[in-house]
Simulated scan of single mutants.
Amino acid sequence: MQKATIQLETLTCPSCMQKIENGVKSLEGVNKESVKVLFNSSKVRAEFDDEKVSIKDIENSIDKLGYEVLKSQVKKI
């Protein structure tokens, strides 16, 4: 498993937060219980199985929802 922190361009509303959270949770290999979108800091935190999904897949999912990823940090757990 790996843990990701993804910095986004500024979030503008709580519905954006919910949309991103649901999008990331829908990816196979993401620990759905771990997904948190932090509105005030515009960050997404999630744990994922790197044998099923990559950080690039998660970033692309967020991008397809219309939100810009500024940077990602991944740690092995």
Rank of each mutant, 00 (worst) to 15 (best):
K36R: 15
Q2A: 11
L11K: 01
G29Y: 00
L38N: 15
V44G: 02
Q2D: 08
K36I: 13
L11W: 07
D50H: 07
S54G: 00
C16G: 00
E47G: 06
D50R: 09
V69D: 02
L70E: 12
E28C: 08
K75I: 09
K64T: 09
I6V: 11
G23N: 12
T12P: 02
A46Y: 03
K75M: 10
T12G: 15
K32S: 10
K56C: 03
I20E: 01
F48Y: 10
E51Y: 05
L65T: 03
V53I: 13
K56H: 11
C13Y: 11
N60L: 06
T12F: 15
G23A: 15
K52A: 02
S61D: 05
K52S: 06
S42R: 09
Q2S: 08
G23K: 12
Q18E: 11
K75A: 13
S61C: 12
F39N: 10
K75G: 03
V53G: 08
V74S: 10
Q73I: 14
L38K: 14
L11R: 02
Q7T: 07
Q7G: 08
V35E: 02
L65M: 14
P14D: 09
Q73W: 14
D49F: 03
N31Y: 11
V30F: 02
S41N: 15
E59P: 00
I58D: 00
T10Q: 14
Q18C: 02
V74H: 04
V24P: 00
L27C: 04
D49G: 03
I62G: 04
I62K: 01
L11T: 02
K25Y: 04
V53F: 00
S26F: 10
Q2M: 08
K19R: 15
C13D: 08
A4T: 13
V44C: 01
M17E: 12
I20V: 06
Q7C: 06
C13N: 08
R45W: 07
G29I: 01
L65F: 11
L70P: 02
G29D: 00
K3M: 10
M17L: 14
I6L: 07
V35K: 02
N60Y: 04
Q73N: 14
D50V: 06
E47V: 08
C16V: 05
V53H: 01
G29V: 07
N60M: 08
K75W: 11
I20T: 05
C16Q: 09
I77Q: 11
R45P: 00
E51I: 11
S54P: 01
V37Y: 10
C16F: 08
K36E: 15
I20W: 06
G66K: 10
I6C: 03
S34A: 09
E59L: 01
K32H: 11
Y67P: 01
E68R: 13
T5D: 07
M17G: 01
A46L: 09
T5Y: 06
G66M: 03
T12Q: 12
